[in-house]
Design a protein around this nucleic acid. Structure first.
Lengths: 100, 100
DNA sequence: TTAACAGATGCAAATATATGAATATTTAGT
DNA sequence: ACTAAATATTCATATATTTGCATCTGTTAA
């Protein structure tokens, strides 16, 4: 039996953890590369960003775990892509707000 | 002498720190209360959210420091308000993405 | 079945964040 | 000047996050 406040607290938690997942320079960079429905492998991302393979995998895992990304395995590769296209909005909004 | 990558890295850092400021359940709750140009005092927020005065002040300080909120002192009170109305977009977007 | 590639995971050290009690600062009223 | 109200700051503790090395798992091709 949940009351309104508990539901609200849960949704706040969920929203916060999703946002926390995004709130990292490398993870924002990942999202930028995935805008427009693009799908990239771990290796592609790790080379694009110039960071370690395992670090890349950790970041992607966090984004997937928090519902920001999805992944599909194809042979040896795992392709990652945005779960909700709308999320690009957040990146765009940030871009506008950090323009000054 | 900055090159493109450094500028980009700086903007990513800035975007991430702004987003990190927002990515906390209580701070998202604060933003919700400030949507539509509303201005609230520290005490009002601390009572609305049911958290300690000093904790509230910390949260507001973080949001202000990272460019999410502005504040204006009026007598004994300090009113806090959104710096960019656009930021409501982020909260709205989260709301849509955490609906499932 | 082995080798080689792609990705995930466990772990530890460094760093960052969150919270609240106590205290300091600022302002208004008397 | 004194007091009380509103807010900010300091500090300590608890907790979470980041990073990369080393290693493990899964997949393909020989």
């Amino acid at each position: 039996m949940l009351n309104i406040q508990e539901i609200d607290a849960d949704r706040l938690e969920m929203a916060a953890s999703m946002l926390k997942a995004i709130a990292h320079p490398m993870r924002i960079a990942i999202l930028k590369h995935l805008e427009g429905g693009k799908k990239l492998t771990v290796t592609e991302i790790h080379e694009l960003l110039g960071i370690e393979q395992s670090t890349t995998s950790h970041h992607l895992g966090i984004l997937k775990d928090k519902g920001v990304l999805c992944s599909r395995r194809e042979g040896k590769n795992t392709y990652y892509y945005l779960k909700h296209d709308i999320l690009s909005q957040i990146v765009d909004c940030l871009q506008r707000c950090t323009c000054e």
